[in-house]
Each structure stands twice: as C-alpha cells, then as structure tokens.
Amino acid sequence: MIAPYIFNILILICIYVILATSLNFALGYTGLLNLGHIAFFGIGAYASVLLVQAGIPYIIALPAAGVIAGFFGFLLILATRKIKGDYLALVTLGFSFVIHSVLLNWTSVTRGPLGIPGIPKPSILGFTISSGFIYFIFALIIAFITWFILNKIVNSPFGRLMQATRDDELGLRVLGKNTSMIKTKVLIISAFFAGIAGSLFAHHITFIDPASFSLQEIILVLTIVIVGGLASLRGSIFATIIILVIPEILRFLSLPGTIVGPARNMIYAVILVAILLWRPRGLFGRVDLN
C-alpha cells in the first residue's frame, strides 16, 4: 500500500523539478518575471493528451507538447518583450488567466470544466509504462535531461548573456547584444520544458481539468523557486523536494479531503511570504529579485 504513495510523491517531485528549474531559468537567470508559467504547464498537458487521443504515439506527443508550449512562449514574449517589472508580471498573470478561460470555455476540444478523464499511461515503442516504479524512472530520466540541458545553457556563454540581461539590459545593448533575442530564446526554452512537465503530469494523474492549471497553482512553483533561490538550479531541486514533502504531513492528520487542498495552498503561501520577509535569497539564491 505504501509503495504507490511513495512513487506518486517521487514522480511529482520529478515533474515539479522540471517545472521549477525551467521557471528559474527564465525568472532567476534572465530576470523575466513570468507569472504565467503554469499556463505552459497546462498547454503541454492538454496538447499531449489531445495528441495521444488522436492516435499519435506518446514518443512524438511528449516533445510535441513541449514544442506547442514553446510556441505559446514565443507568442507571449513577442508581445511582452518591451514590458518590464511588475507590469510584465501582471501581463503574464493575465496570460495564464486567458489560457485557463480558454481551457474552460473551448468545450468542444477540452470538455471544459468536466476535464479529460481516463488518460492512458504512456506507451513507448509498444511498452506501456504502467507501474509507479517505471514511471518514476521515466520521469527521473526526463528531469535529469532537463537539468542537464538547462545547466549546460546557464554555464555557457549564452548563460552569461542571460544573467547580464537580468543585471543590466541597457549595458548589454550598448555592447551590441540583441537582448530581445536572448529573452525570446529563454522564454521559448522555459515554456518548452514546462510543456514537457505538463505532459508527464497529465499521463501520471490520468485526469486533467482546467482547475489543475488555474492561476492559484502558480503559488506552488513560485514558492519552490523563491525558497530554492533565484539563479540556482540546485536550489530549485532541493526546494522542490522540501516543498512537496512538507504538506504530506497533512495527510496524516486525517483531515477531510475538502480541507487538505486549500490547507496545502495556505502552507505554500505562508512559506512564500515568510521567505520573502526573512530570507529573501532563499536557500541557495545568489541574486535579489528586482
């Protein structure tokens, strides 16, 4: 009985590591205040499920989910590359709001508030990933690949350009660097991995509805990134484990089901505000959010 429960948490940790590191990639390293990251997660989830239901093999649907999310990332950055600071935060928040309302209202495709039940477990080249353990290994491999790629990028010359964009965009432009292009690439990559995480999430939970990707779900991934510290992939990974395990205590308090979800979100909100108040750089953060 205990094994499926443990594997469920481990799989979710892998998924949220992908989501949090990809958000930190944009938010922490490049200073792109994207509060709409959860929308890419949702786009990836829906895209992957709809593709699989249309008969496309999962091995193609998974990267396709990332590419579609990346495309939306491209659209978002195309429109917002001139906006900065809290205004950018608000527009990206508005973006996730619109995506949520599209998922809710485009009933002919998304089934609206009813959600899509009975999503098949991924099947790769004839092998179906049905057990929790194999799914965990699968998610772990993808999380590792994500970390590997993102880590490679942030430590490359391009990674230094990203951080320079965050610290002094004007200065970088004086040096003749195209900062809009840097931001565009970063947000596409960030959205791509969020889409991948969405696909893994959908096929793990096997049920998705617009509420799974509503605005308030951003609190979890935002808390992870802030607790772990900006511009620290390692921090985001540690923080994901801590933040996902803490609310599990609630399960052992035998609270009614209707309270567990909101109580968990309240814990995240308290952690988020407490970290901002007393330890603004998080566990491993190297920069302040400006």
Partner: peptide, 12 residues
C-alpha cells in the same frame, strides 16, 4: 509576489 501570496492564503 507577497501580495499574490496573501491573496492565495485568504482565498484558501
């Protein structure tokens, strides 16, 4: 961000 945290706290 703190304000969004407060919003989510009270909503829940």
């Amino acid at each position: 961000i703190a304000s969004i945290g407060i919003l989510i706290f009270f909503q829940n």
